Amino acid sequence: MTTDGAAAVEAFLAALPPDQQAALRALRATIARFLPDHVECMSYAMPGFRQPGVKGRMIAGYAAFRRHLGLYSHSGTIIPTLDCRPFKTSKSGILFTPATPLPDTLVETILRARQAEIATALRP
């Protein structure tokens, strides 16, 4: 993980209630572990990780809302194809709470699916 955008991410996280802050810090660490060479940034007003390089595509972002947290794949086609039970999903994200965080295996599945989608789209 690079430090680009880390100050903005820290400001985002610092403004959250303690339970949401702790849950998203844990998710951030999990994502960074699976994407060690990716760039931490803010995109669509949420923290996330993009591929390295000037034109690096977004892999995933995360956010906090009043009643839930979310992990977003920056794609409308990945989440509907995955078994995300028992979590609620939308076309582009998976919702969870601080009391019920996402399992690392599910986070990894989402990240790897997004990477594969980008790789496929970039093939000539």
Rank of each mutant, 00 (worst) to 15 (best):
R66E: 11
T3S: 15
S75A: 02
E40C: 04
A119W: 03
I59C: 08
S43T: 10
L35S: 02
R67A: 15
I79G: 05
S92R: 14
S43M: 04
A29T: 12
A14Y: 09
A8H: 12
S92E: 14
K91M: 03
A6M: 15
G61V: 10
D4K: 15
L95E: 12
A23Y: 11
A7H: 13
A6W: 11
T89W: 05
R67P: 12
M46Q: 14
L35Y: 00
A11L: 12
F65S: 14
A121M: 11
I31F: 06
S92F: 11
P52M: 01
T89P: 08
D4N: 15
T105I: 05
H68P: 09
V54Q: 11
R33F: 05
T81E: 13
T30F: 03
E40L: 06
F87L: 12
I78R: 01
G70F: 07
T2W: 09
P86I: 03
H38Y: 05
T105F: 07
L95S: 12
A29W: 05
L13Y: 02
T2V: 12
E10A: 14
A23R: 06
I59P: 04
I78P: 02
F87H: 12
P124L: 02
M46C: 11
K55P: 08
A8T: 13
A64E: 00
P103Q: 05
T109D: 11
T105D: 10
H38Q: 04
G61P: 10
P17L: 10
P98G: 15
G76P: 08
P18V: 07
G53V: 02
V9R: 14
P101Y: 12
I31S: 03
R85L: 15
Y62C: 00
F12C: 07
E40T: 02
I94F: 05
G56P: 14
D104I: 06
L122E: 06
G76M: 08
C41F: 07
P124D: 11
T77D: 03
A99Q: 15
R114S: 03
A113K: 01
M46G: 03
R85T: 15
T109F: 03
V107A: 01
I78M: 05
V107K: 00
A7Y: 13
A32M: 01
T30M: 04
R25H: 09
F12T: 00
T81C: 11
L82S: 13
A60E: 03
P80Q: 13
F12S: 04
H38A: 01
A26N: 07
Q51D: 11
A119I: 03
P52R: 01
G76Y: 06
R33I: 02
G93L: 02
T30D: 06
E40I: 00
C41P: 10
H68F: 06
P101K: 11
S73P: 12
G76K: 08
P18D: 10
C41I: 13
G48M: 07
L102F: 08
G61D: 06
A45N: 14
Y44R: 13
F87M: 14
M46V: 13
E108F: 08
C41E: 11
F96L: 04
